[in-house]
Computed example of a mutant assay.
Amino acid sequence: MNSMTPSFSNLWHYVLLILLIFGSSAAASTYNLDTKLAGSSFFDNFNFYTGPDPTNGFVNYVSAAEAATLGLAGPGPNGAMYIGVDHSTTLSTSAPGRKSVRISSKKSWTHGLFIADIAHMPGGICGTWPAFWSFGPNWPNSGEIDVIEGVNSNHDNLMSLHTSSDCTVAGSGQTGTLQSNNCDGNLNGNAGCGSTASTDSSYGASFNAISGGVYATEWTSQYIKIWFFPRSNIPQDITNGVPDPETWGTPQANFQGSCDIASHFANHNLIFDTTFCGDWAANVWSSDPVCKSKAPTCVSYVASNPSAFIDAYWIINSVKVYTLGPAASSTSKKPGSSTKATNI
């Protein structure tokens, strides 16, 4: 036998090595549940922010104790959690602002799959600026990811990133419409890079009319993608707790391009808040034909019309965070590709 010819034993070792390499790669692509924020312990996992609004809103963020006393945070329908705003007090325009809630998760993450099942949001109401988002330390150097955001009578959700310099996105491979491609949070009035959703049902009154749905955000070292699934069309793998983004089709937002995601995003806390007016909603008040007909300024409207905000609330069924880990046994996955209109 030629000494250069590999033996059967050596060939078998090569085969085993290849199987181990590819098998390990396949296992590493599976998302496993890391944290579930839901039910009676939901608020235990969040800090209540009570400082001045960084966006200069006409808002008074209250503590957990005051929120509970005023009924601004607590149990909602069907085991969900409620986060609302004061909708009974008429204010002076020089007052601290309308009472509201801003919560930030005690735990932070770098990379993951974030699945938020939301039944109702405060969007589409003049004067409001609701958001579900995340950000890291030393803004904007650790990045910001805005999953749900809008102001005043907007009916299209805006998904965006805010970073330090040298991060741009291409805006391809998504169903949403790219609004800006430079993610530098210090430019263009802190606009960042953003895309508007391709369907009205992903935000505001239209979202609430269908009992909401699921927002899923996948954050890797290569990209950040955001999907929205209406209540009637939630993928079965999400409902079953074995989410597989590769089967979900084109996302509404696909943030990748000339941007090193790994160096721009890290250690994010999850945030829910509702502010009023501020740097965005107040500044575009006069360009919103619905809102500007109600009052000369955003602050005057918010101060004088408390009942306008009775529907400015969140109903959150759950937020689940998945991280990459070993593949689960194939027997743990439920077959089928049908959808299920239930909470997750």
Rank of each mutant, 00 (worst) to 15 (best):
P6K: 07
P6A: 14
S7I: 04
Y14E: 15
L16C: 14
L16T: 10
L16K: 11
L19W: 08
S24I: 11
S25D: 06
A26V: 06
A27V: 08
S29H: 14
S29T: 07
T30Q: 09
T35M: 13
T35P: 01
K36N: 02
K36D: 05
L37H: 02
S41N: 10
N45Q: 11
F46W: 04
Y49C: 09
Y49M: 00
T50L: 03
T55Y: 10
N56K: 02
A64Y: 09
A67V: 03
L70W: 03
G71W: 15
G71R: 04
G71F: 07
P75I: 03
G76Q: 15
G76A: 01
Y82D: 06
I83V: 15
S88D: 13
L91S: 02
S94L: 14
A95P: 07
P96V: 10
G97C: 04
S100W: 01
V101M: 08
I103L: 13
I103T: 01
K106E: 14
S108I: 06
G112Y: 01
I115M: 10
D117V: 00
I118L: 15
M121D: 05
P122K: 03
G124V: 00
G127A: 03
A131N: 07
G136Y: 05
N138F: 10
N138G: 09
G143L: 00
G143R: 02
G143M: 03
E144R: 08
I145E: 01
V147A: 06
E149A: 06
G150W: 13
N157V: 00
S160Y: 04
S160Q: 06
T163C: 12
S165F: 12
S165A: 14
C167V: 05
T168D: 07
T177N: 13
N181W: 10
N182F: 00
D184W: 07
L187A: 11
N190H: 13
S195L: 09
S195F: 05
S201Q: 10
Y203H: 09
S206M: 07
F207K: 00
S211N: 12
G212T: 12
G213I: 02
S221E: 15
Q222H: 12
R231K: 14
P235V: 02
Q236S: 11
Q236F: 06
D237F: 05
D244G: 02
T247P: 05
W248K: 15
W248N: 06
G249Q: 12
G249E: 09
T250G: 09
P251D: 10
Q252F: 07
A253W: 02
N254V: 05
N267H: 08
T275D: 04
F276M: 04
D279K: 09
A282K: 01
A282D: 11
V284P: 01
P289R: 06
V299Q: 07
V299W: 00
Y301C: 01
N305R: 10
P306E: 11
S307C: 11
A308L: 03
A308N: 06
I310F: 13
I310L: 08
D311F: 08
D311V: 02
W314V: 02
T323D: 00
P326A: 08
S330M: 15
K334N: 14
P335C: 15
P335Y: 12
G336I: 15
G336E: 12
S337E: 14
S338H: 08
I344D: 06
